[in-house]
């Protein structure tokens, strides 16, 4: 295996094979795997800063770095939970979604920040007709409640942008079975989101 130096001075000493193998090697303490994993986890500050900028930079640089550190530590501690169904970056992205939304809530308790409610925050974040950070958080949590076969089809349909025909071929099932799992998954999502909305309404009314 040769060491290649990339144009920006980065080095890649481990081929990008199964990400689960990379994590296993890194957790065993193999230096090259650790270096490769560190390089991959640069996606955390990158995705987080992009998210912050997209939503009008509600967090300053220091706050952003603090959240990035929290995410990196949480990711490291939960690496064994990575299921390998997608790249590490996609798995890590969920941490960024949750922690960013939480950081916006916490800002209400920070000495310098104001106490924004979800509704007020949505008004100041400049993304009309797009889901707010809290919508995205709720949807990710709802997606986690799907059965494995439903989640698989929903992710292939939307995240991998596959047609039902392609999904059926990939999973070795009929198109109707793929559709049945997909629509069953959507119904479950609908129920979950309705339940979440109902819970929030109840909490507000107290």
């Amino acid at each position: 295996m040769t060491v290649r130096r990339e144009p920006h001075g980065e080095t890649e000493t481990v081929p990008r094979s199964d990400d689960r193998d990379l994590i296993s090697q890194a957790k065993r303490g193999e230096p090259r795997a650790i270096a490769a994993l560190f390089d991959r986890l640069r996606c955390v500050p990158r995705m987080l800063s992009h998210r912050n900028r997209t939503y009008g930079s509600p967090l300053d640089t220091q706050e952003l770095e603090d959240v990035a550190q929290e995410i990196l530590i949480a990711v490291w501690r939960k690496l064994e939970q990575f299921d390998g169904r997608g790249p590490i970056e996609a798995w890590v992205h969920r941490f960024c979604v949750f922690q960013f939304a939480q950081a916006l809530r916490d800002r209400g308790h920070a000495p310098r920040g104001g106490g924004w409610s979800d509704g007020e925050l949505e008004r100041v974040l400049p993304r009309p007709n797009e889901p707010s950070p809290f919508d995205l958080e709720a949807l990710h949590l709802a997606l986690d409640t799907l059965e494995a076969d439903e989640a698989e089809v929903v992710r292939l349909k939307h995240f991998a942008e596959k047609s039902f025909l392609e999904i059926a071929h990939a999973l070795g099932i009929s198109q109707n079975t793929a559709k049945a799992r997909y629509y069953r998954g959507l119904r479950r999502l609908q129920q979950r989101l309705a339940q979440t909305t109902s819970n929030r309404t109840s909490e507000t009314a107290r």
Binding site: C43, M47, H50, R51, T54, E89, A90, H93, C96, V97, E130, P131, D135, L136, L139, H140, L143, V154, H158, F159, E161, L186, L189
Partner: peptide, 13 residues
């Protein structure tokens, strides 16, 4: 909505 979540992930990546 699910498509919006997926699009958000693709843009982030």
């Amino acid at each position: 909505k699910v498509e919006a979540v997926a699009r958000d992930e693709r843009e982030s990546l």
